[in-house]
Design a protein around this nucleic acid. Structure first.
Lengths: 181, 181
DNA sequence: CCCTCCGTTGGTACATATTACCATCACGGC
DNA sequence: GCCGTGATGGTAATATGTACCAACGGAGGG
Protein backbone atom coordinates (compact mmCIF):
# COMPACT_ATOMS: atom_id res chain seq x y z
CA UNK A 1 0.00 0.00 0.00
CA UNK A 2 2.53 2.61 1.03
CA UNK A 3 5.77 1.34 -0.44
CA UNK A 4 6.61 4.93 -1.35
CA UNK A 5 6.32 5.89 2.29
CA UNK A 6 8.35 2.87 3.23
CA UNK A 7 11.04 4.08 0.91
CA UNK A 8 10.94 7.51 2.44
CA UNK A 9 11.21 6.05 5.90
CA UNK A 10 14.21 4.02 4.97
CA UNK A 11 15.92 7.05 3.51
CA UNK A 12 15.03 9.09 6.57
CA UNK A 13 16.41 6.35 8.79
CA UNK A 14 19.72 6.09 6.93
CA UNK A 15 20.13 9.84 6.90
CA UNK A 16 19.53 9.95 10.63
CA UNK A 17 22.11 7.25 11.30
CA UNK A 18 24.60 9.03 9.09
CA UNK A 19 24.08 12.27 10.97
CA UNK A 20 24.67 10.69 14.36
CA UNK A 21 27.44 8.32 13.34
CA UNK A 22 25.37 5.21 13.96
CA UNK A 23 25.59 2.00 11.98
CA UNK A 24 22.30 1.42 10.16
CA UNK A 25 21.50 -2.08 11.38
CA UNK A 26 18.29 -3.92 10.64
CA UNK A 27 17.55 -3.96 14.36
CA UNK A 28 17.73 -0.18 14.62
CA UNK A 29 15.61 0.21 11.55
CA UNK A 30 13.01 -2.12 13.03
CA UNK A 31 12.88 -0.06 16.22
CA UNK A 32 12.62 3.12 14.19
CA UNK A 33 9.68 1.77 12.18
CA UNK A 34 7.99 0.27 15.20
CA UNK A 35 8.07 3.63 16.94
CA UNK A 36 6.78 5.46 13.87
CA UNK A 37 3.65 3.37 13.73
CA UNK A 38 2.75 3.75 17.40
CA UNK A 39 0.39 6.32 18.81
CA UNK A 40 0.69 5.28 22.43
CA UNK A 41 3.51 5.25 24.99
CA UNK A 42 4.97 1.77 24.92
CA UNK A 43 7.22 0.09 27.45
CA UNK A 44 10.41 -1.60 26.31
CA UNK A 45 8.58 -4.91 26.38
CA UNK A 46 5.77 -3.68 24.20
CA UNK A 47 8.29 -2.45 21.66
CA UNK A 48 10.16 -5.72 21.95
CA UNK A 49 7.05 -7.78 21.26
CA UNK A 50 6.48 -6.00 17.99
CA UNK A 51 10.19 -6.19 17.17
CA UNK A 52 10.24 -9.95 17.62
CA UNK A 53 7.73 -10.20 14.78
CA UNK A 54 9.77 -8.03 12.45
CA UNK A 55 13.18 -9.40 13.34
CA UNK A 56 13.02 -12.98 14.58
CA UNK A 57 15.67 -13.70 17.15
CA UNK A 58 16.21 -10.11 18.24
CA UNK A 59 17.33 -9.83 21.84
CA UNK A 60 15.55 -7.97 24.57
CA UNK A 61 18.89 -6.45 25.51
CA UNK A 62 19.07 -4.94 22.04
CA UNK A 63 15.65 -3.40 22.46
CA UNK A 64 16.79 -1.74 25.68
CA UNK A 65 20.01 -0.59 24.09
CA UNK A 66 18.50 0.89 20.94
CA UNK A 67 15.71 2.66 22.79
CA UNK A 68 18.29 4.12 25.11
CA UNK A 69 20.41 5.31 22.20
CA UNK A 70 17.41 6.86 20.47
CA UNK A 71 16.36 8.59 23.66
CA UNK A 72 19.82 10.09 24.12
CA UNK A 73 19.69 11.41 20.58
CA UNK A 74 16.25 12.89 21.10
CA UNK A 75 14.50 10.67 18.54
CA UNK A 76 12.18 9.49 21.26
CA UNK A 77 11.43 10.72 24.76
CA UNK A 78 11.69 8.73 27.94
CA UNK A 79 8.47 9.71 29.63
CA UNK A 80 8.24 10.99 33.17
CA UNK A 81 5.72 8.83 35.01
CA UNK A 82 5.30 7.14 38.37
CA UNK A 83 5.16 3.53 37.15
CA UNK A 84 7.89 0.92 37.37
CA UNK A 85 8.72 0.20 33.73
CA UNK A 86 10.22 2.90 31.50
CA UNK A 87 7.90 4.20 28.80
CA UNK A 88 8.76 5.96 25.60
CA UNK A 89 7.03 8.65 23.59
CA UNK A 90 7.61 8.49 19.83
CA UNK A 91 5.99 11.88 19.36
CA UNK A 92 8.64 14.56 19.28
CA UNK A 93 6.76 17.85 18.90
CA UNK A 94 5.71 19.91 21.89
CA UNK A 95 2.80 18.30 23.66
CA UNK A 96 1.54 17.57 27.14
CA UNK A 97 0.13 14.64 29.07
CA UNK A 98 -2.79 13.40 31.09
CA UNK A 99 -1.95 10.67 33.63
CA UNK A 100 -4.63 8.41 34.99
CA UNK A 101 -3.74 7.84 38.64
CA UNK A 102 -5.77 4.64 38.67
CA UNK A 103 -4.74 2.65 35.57
CA UNK A 104 -1.57 4.62 34.76
CA UNK A 105 -2.73 5.35 31.23
CA UNK A 106 -0.97 8.27 29.55
CA UNK A 107 -2.84 10.44 27.08
CA UNK A 108 -1.31 13.08 24.81
CA UNK A 109 -2.86 16.50 24.62
CA UNK A 110 -1.99 19.55 22.59
CA UNK A 111 -2.81 23.06 23.64
CA UNK A 112 -1.30 26.25 22.29
CA UNK A 113 -1.82 28.12 25.53
CA UNK A 114 0.20 25.54 27.41
CA UNK A 115 2.95 25.74 24.83
CA UNK A 116 3.31 29.43 25.46
CA UNK A 117 3.81 29.44 29.21
CA UNK A 118 6.65 31.62 30.33
CA UNK A 119 9.75 29.84 31.58
CA UNK A 120 10.66 30.63 35.18
CA UNK A 121 13.85 32.44 36.05
CA UNK A 122 16.21 29.74 37.31
CA UNK A 123 19.44 31.63 36.85
CA UNK A 124 19.90 31.58 40.61
CA UNK A 125 20.52 27.83 40.68
CA UNK A 126 22.41 27.69 37.40
CA UNK A 127 20.02 25.32 35.68
CA UNK A 128 19.80 25.37 31.91
CA UNK A 129 16.24 24.67 30.78
CA UNK A 130 15.99 22.85 27.48
CA UNK A 131 12.29 22.08 27.32
CA UNK A 132 9.18 21.36 29.30
CA UNK A 133 5.83 19.67 29.39
CA UNK A 134 2.80 19.91 31.61
CA UNK A 135 1.56 16.89 33.57
CA UNK A 136 -2.10 16.72 34.48
CA UNK A 137 -3.22 13.90 36.71
CA UNK A 138 -6.68 12.58 37.39
CA UNK A 139 -9.02 9.83 36.23
CA UNK A 140 -9.52 8.62 32.67
CA UNK A 141 -12.99 7.96 31.33
CA UNK A 142 -12.80 4.20 31.89
CA UNK A 143 -11.66 4.43 35.49
CA UNK A 144 -14.18 7.14 36.19
CA UNK A 145 -17.13 5.00 35.14
CA UNK A 146 -15.68 1.92 36.83
CA UNK A 147 -15.29 3.82 40.09
CA UNK A 148 -18.70 5.44 39.79
CA UNK A 149 -20.42 2.07 39.69
CA UNK A 150 -18.67 0.88 42.83
CA UNK A 151 -19.64 3.85 44.96
CA UNK A 152 -16.36 5.67 44.68
CA UNK A 153 -15.06 5.28 48.22
CA UNK A 154 -11.82 3.61 47.22
CA UNK A 155 -8.98 4.95 49.33
CA UNK A 156 -6.61 2.55 47.64
CA UNK A 157 -7.07 2.89 43.89
CA UNK A 158 -5.98 -0.57 42.84
CA UNK A 159 -3.31 -0.66 40.20
CA UNK A 160 -4.08 -2.75 37.15
CA UNK A 161 -2.21 -6.06 37.35
CA UNK A 162 1.01 -6.22 35.40
CA UNK A 163 0.50 -7.62 31.94
CA UNK A 164 3.84 -9.10 30.98
CA UNK A 165 3.61 -12.65 29.71
CA UNK A 166 5.28 -15.13 31.99
CA UNK A 167 7.69 -16.33 29.37
CA UNK A 168 11.21 -16.91 30.70
CA UNK A 169 13.40 -14.08 29.44
CA UNK A 170 14.82 -14.29 25.92
CA UNK A 171 12.59 -16.99 24.65
CA UNK A 172 14.39 -17.05 21.33
CA UNK A 173 16.98 -19.47 22.69
CA UNK A 174 15.45 -22.26 20.68
CA UNK A 175 16.57 -20.72 17.43
CA UNK A 176 20.27 -20.25 17.99
CA UNK A 177 21.93 -17.91 15.54
CA UNK A 178 25.32 -17.53 17.04
CA UNK A 179 26.85 -21.02 17.17
CA UNK A 180 28.60 -21.28 13.86
CA UNK A 181 28.48 -24.97 12.86
CA UNK B 1 17.83 22.03 70.54
CA UNK B 2 14.30 21.85 69.20
CA UNK B 3 12.59 19.56 71.62
CA UNK B 4 9.54 21.80 71.39
CA UNK B 5 9.41 21.24 67.68
CA UNK B 6 9.93 17.55 68.24
CA UNK B 7 6.98 17.59 70.55
CA UNK B 8 4.90 19.37 67.95
CA UNK B 9 5.89 16.86 65.33
CA UNK B 10 4.93 13.98 67.51
CA UNK B 11 1.55 15.52 68.21
CA UNK B 12 1.07 16.24 64.53
CA UNK B 13 1.98 12.67 63.70
CA UNK B 14 -0.42 11.14 66.19
CA UNK B 15 -3.22 13.41 65.07
CA UNK B 16 -2.60 12.40 61.49
CA UNK B 17 -2.70 8.71 62.32
CA UNK B 18 -5.88 9.19 64.29
CA UNK B 19 -7.54 10.96 61.38
CA UNK B 20 -6.70 8.22 58.93
CA UNK B 21 -7.26 5.29 61.24
CA UNK B 22 -3.62 4.24 61.26
CA UNK B 23 -1.79 2.73 64.21
CA UNK B 24 0.95 5.12 65.36
CA UNK B 25 3.93 2.79 65.20
CA UNK B 26 7.51 3.85 65.77
CA UNK B 27 8.30 2.84 62.20
CA UNK B 28 5.69 5.19 60.76
CA UNK B 29 6.82 7.97 63.00
CA UNK B 30 10.40 7.48 61.85
CA UNK B 31 9.33 7.71 58.20
CA UNK B 32 7.29 10.80 58.99
CA UNK B 33 10.24 12.52 60.64
CA UNK B 34 12.72 11.42 58.00
CA UNK B 35 10.55 12.96 55.32
CA UNK B 36 10.09 16.19 57.28
CA UNK B 37 13.80 16.81 57.45
CA UNK B 38 14.45 16.20 53.76
CA UNK B 39 14.59 18.90 51.13
CA UNK B 40 15.30 16.62 48.20
CA UNK B 41 13.36 13.85 46.48
CA UNK B 42 14.59 10.60 47.96
CA UNK B 43 14.19 7.08 46.66
CA UNK B 44 12.85 4.36 48.92
CA UNK B 45 16.39 3.22 49.53
CA UNK B 46 17.55 6.66 50.55
CA UNK B 47 14.70 6.88 53.02
CA UNK B 48 15.48 3.38 54.21
CA UNK B 49 19.11 4.22 54.87
CA UNK B 50 18.13 7.04 57.19
CA UNK B 51 15.46 4.90 58.78
CA UNK B 52 17.92 2.17 59.62
CA UNK B 53 19.78 4.67 61.78
CA UNK B 54 16.68 5.75 63.66
CA UNK B 55 15.09 2.34 64.00
CA UNK B 56 17.66 -0.47 64.02
CA UNK B 57 16.29 -3.62 62.44
CA UNK B 58 13.61 -1.95 60.37
CA UNK B 59 12.82 -3.85 57.20
CA UNK B 60 13.11 -2.53 53.68
CA UNK B 61 9.66 -3.96 53.03
CA UNK B 62 8.31 -1.72 55.75
CA UNK B 63 9.88 1.32 54.12
CA UNK B 64 8.14 0.48 50.86
CA UNK B 65 4.87 -0.17 52.64
CA UNK B 66 4.81 2.99 54.71
CA UNK B 67 5.84 5.24 51.86
CA UNK B 68 3.09 3.70 49.78
CA UNK B 69 0.55 4.26 52.53
CA UNK B 70 1.63 7.88 52.98
CA UNK B 71 1.47 8.47 49.24
CA UNK B 72 -2.07 7.10 49.04
CA UNK B 73 -3.10 9.41 51.86
CA UNK B 74 -1.49 12.39 50.16
CA UNK B 75 1.11 13.02 52.88
CA UNK B 76 3.82 12.67 50.28
CA UNK B 77 3.81 12.61 46.49
CA UNK B 78 5.16 9.89 44.26
CA UNK B 79 7.06 11.90 41.68
CA UNK B 80 6.71 11.43 37.93
CA UNK B 81 10.21 11.15 36.48
CA UNK B 82 12.04 9.14 33.83
CA UNK B 83 14.29 7.13 36.17
CA UNK B 84 13.77 3.58 37.36
CA UNK B 85 13.43 3.90 41.13
CA UNK B 86 10.35 5.57 42.60
CA UNK B 87 11.04 8.92 44.22
CA UNK B 88 9.00 10.80 46.76
CA UNK B 89 8.35 14.46 47.36
CA UNK B 90 7.68 15.47 50.97
CA UNK B 91 6.54 18.91 49.84
CA UNK B 92 2.80 18.95 49.36
CA UNK B 93 1.88 22.44 48.19
CA UNK B 94 1.64 23.34 44.51
CA UNK B 95 5.09 23.52 42.97
CA UNK B 96 6.96 22.50 39.86
CA UNK B 97 10.17 20.67 38.98
CA UNK B 98 13.44 20.91 37.11
CA UNK B 99 14.84 17.55 35.93
CA UNK B 100 18.50 17.20 35.10
CA UNK B 101 18.67 14.85 32.13
CA UNK B 102 22.25 13.95 32.99
CA UNK B 103 22.36 13.17 36.72
CA UNK B 104 18.58 12.81 37.25
CA UNK B 105 18.56 15.40 40.01
CA UNK B 106 15.15 16.91 40.73
CA UNK B 107 14.86 20.51 41.87
CA UNK B 108 11.74 22.22 43.21
CA UNK B 109 10.65 25.54 41.83
CA UNK B 110 7.78 27.81 42.71
CA UNK B 111 6.25 30.28 40.30
CA UNK B 112 2.87 31.94 40.59
CA UNK B 113 2.50 32.28 36.86
CA UNK B 114 2.89 28.55 36.41
CA UNK B 115 0.32 27.91 39.12
CA UNK B 116 -2.22 29.92 37.20
CA UNK B 117 -2.08 28.21 33.82
CA UNK B 118 -5.46 27.46 32.36
CA UNK B 119 -6.50 23.82 32.28
CA UNK B 120 -7.15 22.47 28.81
CA UNK B 121 -10.58 21.31 27.73
CA UNK B 122 -10.44 17.53 27.90
CA UNK B 123 -14.17 16.89 28.00
CA UNK B 124 -13.88 15.18 24.63
CA UNK B 125 -11.96 12.23 26.06
CA UNK B 126 -13.82 12.14 29.37
CA UNK B 127 -10.79 12.71 31.54
CA UNK B 128 -11.24 14.30 34.95
CA UNK B 129 -8.28 16.52 35.79
CA UNK B 130 -7.45 16.68 39.49
CA UNK B 131 -4.16 18.56 39.45
CA UNK B 132 -1.02 19.33 37.51
CA UNK B 133 2.58 20.29 37.62
CA UNK B 134 5.06 21.54 35.08
CA UNK B 135 8.20 19.56 34.20
CA UNK B 136 11.22 21.42 32.88
CA UNK B 137 14.17 19.37 31.73
CA UNK B 138 17.74 20.39 31.04
CA UNK B 139 21.11 20.45 32.76
CA UNK B 140 21.80 21.31 36.37
CA UNK B 141 24.70 23.58 37.28
CA UNK B 142 27.01 20.70 38.21
CA UNK B 143 26.46 18.75 35.03
CA UNK B 144 26.76 21.89 32.97
CA UNK B 145 30.22 22.73 34.28
CA UNK B 146 31.29 19.10 34.13
CA UNK B 147 30.25 18.90 30.50
CA UNK B 148 31.78 22.27 29.68
CA UNK B 149 35.19 21.14 30.84
CA UNK B 150 35.10 18.07 28.62
CA UNK B 151 34.34 20.05 25.47
CA UNK B 152 30.63 19.42 25.46
CA UNK B 153 30.52 16.91 22.64
CA UNK B 154 29.12 14.12 24.75
CA UNK B 155 26.39 12.40 22.77
CA UNK B 156 25.76 10.05 25.66
CA UNK B 157 25.41 12.06 28.85
CA UNK B 158 26.53 9.41 31.29
CA UNK B 159 24.16 8.61 34.07
CA UNK B 160 25.63 8.77 37.56
CA UNK B 161 26.44 5.27 38.75
CA UNK B 162 23.86 3.71 41.03
CA UNK B 163 24.74 4.27 44.65
CA UNK B 164 23.04 1.44 46.47
CA UNK B 165 25.38 -0.46 48.73
CA UNK B 166 25.84 -4.03 47.65
CA UNK B 167 24.61 -5.42 50.91
CA UNK B 168 22.43 -8.51 50.55
CA UNK B 169 18.84 -7.51 51.20
CA UNK B 170 17.71 -7.04 54.79
CA UNK B 171 21.08 -7.07 56.45
CA UNK B 172 19.53 -7.00 59.89
CA UNK B 173 19.25 -10.77 59.93
CA UNK B 174 22.06 -10.99 62.45
CA UNK B 175 19.94 -9.45 65.17
CA UNK B 176 16.92 -11.69 65.20
CA UNK B 177 13.93 -10.14 66.89
CA UNK B 178 11.28 -12.62 66.07
CA UNK B 179 12.38 -15.94 67.55
CA UNK B 180 11.00 -15.78 71.06
CA UNK B 181 13.32 -17.87 73.28
C1' DC C 1 -1.35 -2.88 85.16
C1' DC C 2 -2.48 -6.83 82.36
C1' DC C 3 -4.83 -9.01 78.43
C1' DT C 4 -6.50 -9.68 74.17
C1' DC C 5 -7.11 -8.52 69.29
C1' DC C 6 -6.27 -6.96 65.02
C1' DG C 7 -3.45 -4.02 62.34
C1' DT C 8 1.46 -3.97 61.43
C1' DT C 9 6.07 -5.64 60.91
C1' DG C 10 10.23 -8.60 59.46
C1' DG C 11 11.98 -11.62 56.50
C1' DT C 12 12.00 -14.80 52.74
C1' DA C 13 10.90 -15.81 48.27
C1' DC C 14 9.50 -14.36 44.19
C1' DA C 15 8.36 -11.22 40.17
C1' DT C 16 9.73 -7.74 37.24
C1' DA C 17 12.99 -4.25 35.18
C1' DT C 18 17.53 -3.11 33.79
C1' DT C 19 22.45 -3.51 33.13
C1' DA C 20 27.34 -5.72 32.69
C1' DC C 21 29.89 -8.54 30.18
C1' DC C 22 31.93 -10.84 26.36
C1' DA C 23 32.18 -13.84 22.48
C1' DT C 24 30.42 -13.44 18.02
C1' DC C 25 28.75 -11.05 14.15
C1' DA C 26 27.85 -7.82 10.30
C1' DC C 27 27.82 -2.91 8.39
C1' DG C 28 30.34 -0.02 5.56
C1' DG C 29 34.82 1.79 3.98
C1' DC C 30 38.41 0.20 1.06
C1' DG D 1 35.46 -9.53 -1.36
C1' DC D 2 38.32 -8.22 3.13
C1' DC D 3 38.89 -5.98 7.50
C1' DG D 4 38.18 -3.23 11.47
C1' DT D 5 35.09 -1.41 14.48
C1' DG D 6 30.88 -0.92 16.35
C1' DA D 7 26.60 -3.69 17.32
C1' DT D 8 24.18 -7.80 18.70
C1' DG D 9 22.70 -12.09 21.45
C1' DG D 10 22.65 -14.41 25.46
C1' DT D 11 23.74 -15.23 30.20
C1' DA D 12 24.38 -13.72 34.61
C1' DA D 13 24.06 -10.31 37.83
C1' DT D 14 21.95 -6.31 39.83
C1' DA D 15 17.88 -3.19 40.89
C1' DT D 16 13.44 -2.49 42.17
C1' DG D 17 9.09 -3.89 43.90
C1' DT D 18 5.41 -7.26 45.72
C1' DA D 19 3.16 -11.56 47.98
C1' DC D 20 2.98 -14.08 51.79
C1' DC D 21 2.77 -15.47 56.54
C1' DA D 22 4.26 -16.08 61.18
C1' DA D 23 5.40 -13.20 65.00
C1' DC D 24 4.70 -8.70 67.27
C1' DG D 25 2.96 -4.82 69.65
C1' DG D 26 -0.18 -0.48 69.99
C1' DA D 27 -4.60 0.65 71.84
C1' DG D 28 -8.74 -0.03 74.08
C1' DG D 29 -11.24 -2.78 77.67
C1' DG D 30 -10.98 -5.04 81.87
Amino acid sequence: MDSATTHERLAQFRRMCREHGLVATVQRQAVFETLLEREDHPTVDQVYERLAERVPGISRTTAYRILDTFARLGLVTRICHPGSAARFDPKIGRHHHLFCVSCERIIDIEDDRLDRIQWPDVSACGFEIQGFDVHFHGLCADCRSRQGKKGGGAVRPSKQPKARKSVPRNRSSNLPRRTKP
